[in-house]
Amino acid sequence: MPGVPNENFTVSVTNGRVKVTGEAPALSHNSSVRFYSTDVAMLSTPVDIPVSRTKTIAKNSVICLIILPV
Rank of each mutant, 00 (worst) to 15 (best):
M1I: 00
M1F: 01
M1W: 00
P2D: 14
P2K: 12
G3C: 13
V4N: 04
V4L: 08
P5D: 10
N6G: 05
N6I: 03
N6C: 10
N6D: 12
N6T: 07
N8Y: 11
F9P: 04
T10H: 04
V11G: 01
V11D: 01
S12I: 04
T14D: 12
N15V: 08
G16M: 00
R17C: 08
R17N: 15
R17D: 15
V18L: 08
K19V: 12
V20D: 09
V20Q: 05
V20K: 02
T21S: 10
G22E: 00
G22L: 03
E23I: 04
E23G: 02
E23M: 09
E23W: 08
E23L: 08
E23A: 05
A24E: 00
A24G: 06
A24C: 10
P25R: 06
A26F: 06
A26H: 08
A26N: 10
L27E: 09
S28W: 02
H29K: 13
H29Q: 15
H29E: 15
S31C: 00
S32V: 12
S32K: 14
S32M: 09
S32R: 10
S32A: 10
R34Q: 04
R34V: 01
R34K: 09
R34W: 03
F35M: 13
Y36Q: 07
Y36R: 10
S37N: 09
S37W: 05
S37G: 11
S37F: 06
T38Y: 03
T38S: 08
D39E: 15
V40Y: 07
V40H: 06
V40K: 03
A41R: 10
M42A: 09
M42N: 10
M42S: 14
L43C: 06
L43W: 06
S44F: 02
T45Q: 05
T45C: 00
T45N: 02
T45M: 04
P46C: 09
V47H: 06
V47N: 02
D48L: 00
D48S: 06
D48H: 02
I49R: 08
I49D: 01
I49S: 01
P50K: 12
V51F: 11
V51L: 13
V51W: 07
S52F: 04
S52D: 14
S52H: 13
T54G: 01
I57L: 12
I57H: 13
A58P: 09
A58Y: 05
A58V: 03
K59S: 05
K59V: 12
K59N: 11
N60E: 11
N60V: 08
N60K: 07
S61W: 05
S61I: 00
V62N: 15
I63N: 03
I63V: 15
C64A: 14
C64E: 11
C64W: 04
C64H: 13
L65W: 01
L65G: 00
I66G: 11
I66T: 13
I66P: 05
I66K: 14
I67N: 03
I67L: 05
I67H: 07
I67W: 05
I67R: 07
L68I: 03
L68C: 10
L68Y: 12
P69F: 08
V70N: 00
